[in-house]
Write a protein that binds this DNA or RNA. Structure first.
Lengths: 357, 357
DNA sequence: TTGAAAGCGATACCAA
DNA sequence: TTGGTATCGCTTTCAA
């Protein structure tokens, strides 16, 4: 039988309350008694108040939940996600809270719902989950503080949110390439369509927005608007869907564009990870980035610099840190609950003027 | 007032038990009543059974805790740690459990202890925590399943453990270099001494083992034994402590060795991350890896291959996955509770024969 | 198939 | 400073 508060109380000959105080409010006790209690606890192998019972009573758990689409392990595969998580972790740590990673399996939606229902947390951080995911409703219904990274989950003046102006940032990429003279342009992105396949897709235009993840849509819209400044129309864009946000699929997706007769002079990837794959695809074909084909990414993960990738820099760690802070200590002022972070276009060697042959 | 089971029960006009059954054992109810209950719950905004209360009653939480030394955010900084975590996450996900990251701050030991005490989990995975850390005792005292990665936390026949033969693996590194003719050798490692500073240190020898983290000690012992095969004695080794296990500190630490008058012909780093830093230091000085100075790492993180680093490959993701599995479903057979994984010496371009000038 | 009652282990208020 | 008592919200026999 595992020892409980009661066990210790009986052993010492005091009440439960007193033992509880010995742990939770040491100053409410005479040092002598406190020591006596701790000593007895040690002797009996009492590990201290049960966290679950304590949480139930206190109404506070001491952990925040982070929701992830796709496999939980994805969190550790995408460098950008890792940076974001790291920021969240820093805030949580400072606050003495743990970080509960909530699996949101793609294959089994019901499992994700259960996971959210069962998550013992004080608040949720939603990161890059498709708006249609049923688990989002469940998350909201938990009635806990909720902060969305990338996109407001619950529209409304007091919903919490930390993100960037995706479209505006993407627009700078588009106009950068437009100014360089690019007219034949391909875009590589995941989540363009519901299916997880890699290959060209046709979309009617930015007006016909059916993408599920707002980030995708907004970036795409930005790309298109920026390129339009150079006269590149929507119909001039060659869209390739990537099955997953990974380097390998980025390379595969790029292949569909690069192997066309009228090869694009620029490939815009919607994430750095995909862009690195695009660079791989160039290398395979003996094409020079920024010379034969310009390539851009988005996020500015550490690898991007080494690869000389032109991309959008956004403060990933800081974004996570802010998300954590909002969650653990929601500001009174509604205006402070919605944070928009700055971004920069970082121009490196992977983009250059289109060659006039 | 937040709705509870009771709220719903009252609304429908049934007892709490019945509502509880509607959620936890749907088959114990007539479909009609069940639907009626769910409908009422929806209407009242009842999010389903409270996870904390449920955990308390059931005695099971549905999450496993992972302990990390140093800042919690370190988990996301070290590529090897990320791989390991990913394995743990995969196992947890398959089991429908969450992953609670437990911060074990270095600065504030008491905070770490509290974090362990408060962690609502069904088991702990201890990863690379110094044996002396007070939180370890607390972890053990929780009386939950406990699996150690890297090193048995609670010695004993039924303690759970997944790791590699650190010393044997390190020995292959040492003898590899010995065979290549290296006699002036430096070792770069974190945790050689208690202080977190970067710089040369003197240790009496592998016999005088005072390192806190067993992994460090074992690898060091292996290095020494392997090198001894070529006649390199302990006193011939130049030891440099790295303040943290990071690329930057690896580079700094390497500087102390590389800038000596009698520059070593080989630098053994105790992790790949440090080794990458050593390579950086070589590059800064215009020295060629494997030519002017041989460099080895340990772990074989993805970046190692690209850098052409000779290193020890160990199955990081699998290690994590096994740790998770042991925790969530401890095998009856005591022998199956201790898993030793295979390792390989991967020879790449960063090591070569010593130049006879 | 449904309900009544007994906890799970702890905390907090209020007296003493 | 210490103790009594009433919960926290749910699950689980055991009867009905």
């Amino acid at each position: 039988m595992k020892p409980t508060l009661q066990t210790v109380a009986d052993a010492v000959g005091v009440s439960r309350s007193t033992v509880s105080n010995a742990y939770s409010r040491p100053d409410q006790l005479s040092p002598a008694l406190r020591e006596k209690i701790h000593e007895a606890a040690r002797r009996l192998g009492y590990p201290g108040p049960d966290p679950t019972a304590r949480s139930l009573r206190r109404g506070r758990v001491g952990a925040i939940g982070v929701l992830f689409t796709s496999a939980l392990s994805y969190a550790f595969t995408d460098p950008y996600a890792v940076l974001f998580l790291r920021g969240v972790a820093e805030s949580a740590e400072r606050h003495g809270s743990g970080l509960l990673l909530v699996p949101l399996s793609e294959a089994d939606e019901q499992a994700g719902i259960e996971a959210v229902r069962n998550a013992a947390v004080d608040g949720f951080c939603v990161y890059c989950v498709p708006a249609s995911h049923a688990a989002l409703d469940v998350t909201r219904s938990r009635g806990l503080p909720l902060v969305a990274a990338e996109r407001p989950v619950e529209p409304g003046p007091d919903s919490m949110y930390v993100g960037i102006d995706e479209a505006a940032a993407a627009r700078t990429v588009g106009s950068h390439l437009a100014r360089l003279g690019h007219r034949r342009v391909a875009i590589v992105s995941d989540l363009l369509v519901a299916e997880r396949r890699t290959g060209p897709v046709a979309l009617d235009g930015p007006a016909d927005i059916r993408y599920d993840v707002d980030v995708t849509r907004e970036r795409l819209r930005g790309f298109a608007e920026g390129l339009a400044e150079g006269g590149v129309g929507w119909s001039d864009l060659f869209l390739v869907n990537a099955g997953t946000n990974s380097r390998a699929e980025g390379a595969r997706a790029a292949g569909y564009a690069l192997d066309r007769a009228d090869r694009p002079t620029a490939v815009l990837a919607i994430t750095d990870l995909l862009a690195l794959g695009v660079l791989d695809a160039l290398a395979t074909r003996g094409l020079g980035p920024g010379r034969d084909v310009s390539v851009t990414g988005f996020d500015d993960i550490p690898e991007a610099a080494a690869a000389g990738l032109t991309t959008i820099r956004q403060p990933a760690v800081e974004k996570g840190a802010i998300a954590g802070r909002l969650l653990l200590d929601p500001p009174e002022d509604p205006a402070a609950r919605q944070v928009l972070l700055p971004t920069d276009l970082v121009v490196r060697a992977s983009t250059g003027p289109v060659e006039r042959k």
